[in-house]
Structures are given as structure tokens and as C-alpha cells.
């Protein structure tokens, strides 16, 4: 949540209520928040700063949170905005891919007729260990990595993701599709490097 962002103030909590709501609604999500921050930054110190920053902002703007609504999605949205506004600017990560171009291309009728597929087998993925899968995920551009984290790891619905990311649901779907195509390419590449014959009917491990 940026300083400039318009935040509707809906509640007027007392100081005691603020602390109660914070403890009850926000703190249970701190492990998920930390994992999200770590997967975005790939750095423990940055993840610490990002989570701390997010929770302090959440407390500061607690009057715009209605108790009993989706606290996790609300917190993820603040963290994502903090990451974009504060951390991504100073990070050494190369500039993000122009996913709008990718989405525009993907959504065009011409492209819809020529869908790409990645020749990868479920059995090959099952043989990869967690670290190899994590490496493939971490190698994706952050905008694609984000939708996979939100959907597959955190289990948000498309509607929740659209709110967290400030994008239309159609864009969530297309970005997720594109992200998974890239992830499959990365997984295939990892599997090949590890000696799996990804195209054969039977797996052969060197």
C-alpha cells in the first residue's frame, strides 16, 4: 500500500481493538507472508524487512480493514505493493518482462489457434526433488513467479489474485497460463540436465 494510494477508511477501532484485530486477524498469516516475501526477494534479510514493513503498514492502516473479511488477501496485497514500490526499485534483478506484451500476444486470436505445448511428462516432474522445483520457480521473472505462488502455493482464487495484483481476472488467467508454460520449460531443462530422458516413454536416469 503506497502513501499515495487512496485508502477508504471504513472502521474506527479503539486502540485496544486495533491491537486485538491485529493479533487475531493478521498474525496467523505471518508464516505465509514470510514465505511469500522470501520467494519474491530470494533473500532472508530482504524478506525480514518486507514482512516487517508490511505488518507496520497493516497496523497503520488497520481502519481500512473490516474485521472478519479476507485478512490474508489484504495483507498479501500490501506486501506485493511494498515489494513493487520499495524493494524492486533497489533490487539488482533485471527489469521485469513486459508481460503486458506477452498477454496481449497470448490473448490474440491468432495465438489462441497456435498454442504452445511443452513436451514434459508428469512422471518426470514426480522424480524431481523440492530444491529442483524451487530453483525452476525462482528462475521465473517475478511477475510470473508471483501468480504461481499465489495460486499454487497459497491457494488464492482467481478473484482474490485479481484484487491482490490489481489486474482483471482475465489477465490473472492468461498470466498464470504463460507462467506455467515457462515453468514447464524450466522443469524440462532441469530434468534434462539431471539426466532424465524427458521425451522417452521410459525414464532413464544417468
Amino acid at each position: 500500500m503506497s502513501e499515495q494510494e487512496e485508502i477508504p477508511t471504513l472502521q474506527t477501532y479503539s486502540e485496544t481493538e486495533k491491537h486485538r484485530v491485529f493479533e487475531k486477524e493478521f498474525m496467523p498469516h505471518i508464516d505465509s507472508m514470510y514465505n511469500f516475501a522470501f520467494r519474491l526477494t530470494n533473500d532472508e534479510d530482504d524478506a525480514n524487512d518486507l514482512v516487517q514493513d508490511t505488518y507496520l503498514k497493516a497496523f497503520r492502516f488497520i481502519n481500512s480493514f473490516e474485521e472478519g473479511t479476507n485478512a490474508k488477501a489484504w495483507l498479501f496485497r500490501i506486501l506485493k505493493n511494498s515489494f513493487i514500490n520499495d524493494f524492486r526499485k533497489k533490487s539488482k534483478e533485471p527489469s521485469k518482462v513486459d508481460y503486458q506484451d506477452v498477454e496481449t500476444t497470448y490473448n490474440s486470436e491468432e495465438d489462441a489457434e497456435t498454442t504452445q505445448t511443452v513436451d514434459l511428462r508428469a512422471e518426470t516432474v514426480q522424480d524431481l526433488i523440492g530444491d529442483e522445483i524451487a530453483n525452476a520457480l525462482n528462475s521465473l521473472p517475478v511477475d510470473f513467479r508471483t501468480v504461481i505462488i499465489l495460486c499454487d502455493i497459497e491457494g488464492f482464487t482467481y478473484e482474490e489474485m485479481a484484487k491482490i495484483l490489481d489486474i482483471p481476472i482475465g489477465t490473472v488467467r492468461s498470466r498464470l497460463h504463460r507462467a506455467r508454460m515457462l515453468l514447464k520449460e524450466k522443469l524440462k531443462s532441469y530434468a534434462k540436465n539431471l539426466g532424465y530422458d524427458v521425451n522417452a516413454d521410459t525414464l532413464a536416469e544417468n
Binding site: N48, V125, L128, I133, A134, I148, I153, R180, K184
Partner: peptide, 21 residues
């Protein structure tokens, strides 16, 4: 379908989940 399901399951179950320090 099998591949997409397998990748999603791997994301959910096989990635290390860290606890906040």
C-alpha cells in the same frame, strides 16, 4: 491434465515452507 495436476501438487507439497524467524 496429469502434468498440470502434478506440477501444482509439487508446488503445494514439495517446496520448503519456512517459519518466520
Amino acid at each position: 491434465y496429469e502434468l498440470e495436476k502434478c506440477i501444482k501438487d509439487a508446488m503445494q507439497l514439495r517446496l520448503e515452507k519456512k517459519c518466520v524467524p
